[in-house]
Amino acid sequence: MKAVLVHRPGGPEALDYAEVPMPDLGERDVLIRAQAFGVGQPDRLIRSGAYKWMPPLPANPGNDVAGILEAVGTNVSGLAVGQRVLLSARDLAQRGGCYAEYVAAPADAVHLLPDNVAFEDAVCLPNYQVAWALLHRCGASTPPHSALIVGAAGGVGTSLVQFAKLAGMTAIGTVSTREKAAFAKQMGADEIIFYRDEDVVGRTRALTGGRGVSLVLDHVCGPEFYSYLGALDKWGTLVSYNAFAGLPTENAMGEMRKYLDICPAIRCFSFHIYDHDREGRREIMRTVIGHLADGTIRPSIFRRFKLSEVRAAHELLDSGTAFGKIVMIPG
């Protein structure tokens, strides 16, 4: 069978589409015949060797696969050949392992998919897991009424927009281009701020009648991070869920004390908090699968590639020009 391996971490050229042996099937395992693969930032971090939870080399960088059960182990109950499933590497002992035509995994790691859920939509759901946790676990004790979503046209960004609207919040998104603005609005964003040309904090306060937002959800960090404290309402929370631009250099407590009149909070969030909370993690996935099945969320796929085109898929991922999800299919 074909799979993707990284022997020496690096750029997209490090991805080797190769012939590998079929995986062994343990008595408590299932074998998935892949139909779709998600392409996301954890895959890029494994490929580049920068992931804190890096699997051993040679590594298969894929983290999300959806497909059909091809075989089940002799001690597996409740699952049958032909069923449709989703597997996230978050439910495996180590990350990666999902960029392959056939993937073996513990039976209790997969999620059954309803018949009306497309495989390509299903591999978008790990982004929705993150978005659900960001919106429903990171705020203050009072329910958030609004959110400023940095990068609202991205994979997690569009998931945040949809879940914010589903929860009755006002969703304000930042984007870089008119095309991304139109896309974020299509996904449900109430207001758009062009972060390259506008004062994000000033515009946020203007759009909220001076009140500010309950949550600022930021995956960039960098030198602008603490400025977002100025966009918060009373008891508001500034959440960092990645740091693509690096860490700010200012003193965190000093910056927070500039806004004592609103009692702000800063939270550093990672979905790895669920690494040792299996039921909590899987309950969130069941929730988002349910939302996808009943049509209350709608993933947007920016572009599809074949698995053999994995380098091109990662070149697009690295470019930062995609809005929505990048997906691969076998071939």
Score class of each variant (00 low, 15 high):
Gly151Cys: 07
Ala243Cys: 15
His291Ile: 06
Gly157His: 05
Ala66Gln: 07
Ile289Pro: 03
Lys258His: 08
Gly230Phe: 01
Glu224Arg: 13
Gly331Asp: 15
Gly97His: 09
Gln186Ile: 11
Trp235Met: 14
Ala89Asn: 07
Arg205Cys: 06
Asn251Met: 15
Tyr51Gly: 08
Pro299Asn: 04
Gly26Ser: 05
Met253Glu: 12
Ala231Gln: 01
Glu224Pro: 07
Gly188Glu: 02
Ile326Ser: 12
Ala243Arg: 13
Ala18Trp: 06
Val76Glu: 03
Leu148Glu: 02
Gly40Cys: 10
Arg281Glu: 12
Phe244Ile: 12
Thr287Asp: 06
Leu148Cys: 06
Leu112Trp: 04
Pro58Lys: 10
Tyr226Ala: 08
Ala18Arg: 15
Val72Gly: 08
Pro144Val: 03
Arg303Leu: 07
Phe183Asp: 02
Leu112Cys: 09
Ala147Phe: 02
His145Asp: 12
Met256Tyr: 06
Ala171Glu: 01
Asp91Met: 12
Ser319Ala: 14
Asp294Thr: 08
Tyr99Gly: 09
Leu260Asn: 11
Leu148Trp: 03
Met169Ile: 03
Pro114Gln: 04
Val220Cys: 10
Glu70His: 14
Ile192His: 03
Met54His: 15
Val327Phe: 04
Arg298Lys: 14
Tyr99Ser: 09
Arg304Asp: 13
Pro144Met: 03
Arg304Thr: 14
Arg44Phe: 14
Ala133Asn: 07
His111Phe: 14
Phe119Arg: 08
Thr142Glu: 09
Gly295Ile: 11
Ala93Gly: 09
Ile326Leu: 15
Leu25Gln: 10
Thr170Ala: 12
Gly173Asp: 03
Ala3Ser: 08
Ala171Lys: 00
Ala164Trp: 03
Leu135His: 00
Ala206Gly: 05
Gly254Ile: 05
Ile289Thr: 02
Asp199Ala: 09
His145Ala: 05
Asp294Lys: 08
Leu5Ala: 01
Gln83Arg: 05
Pro143Gly: 00
Cys221Arg: 12
Val161Glu: 10
Val6Leu: 12
Val150Ser: 09
Asp24Ile: 10
Gly73Arg: 06
Ala14Phe: 03
Gly173Tyr: 01
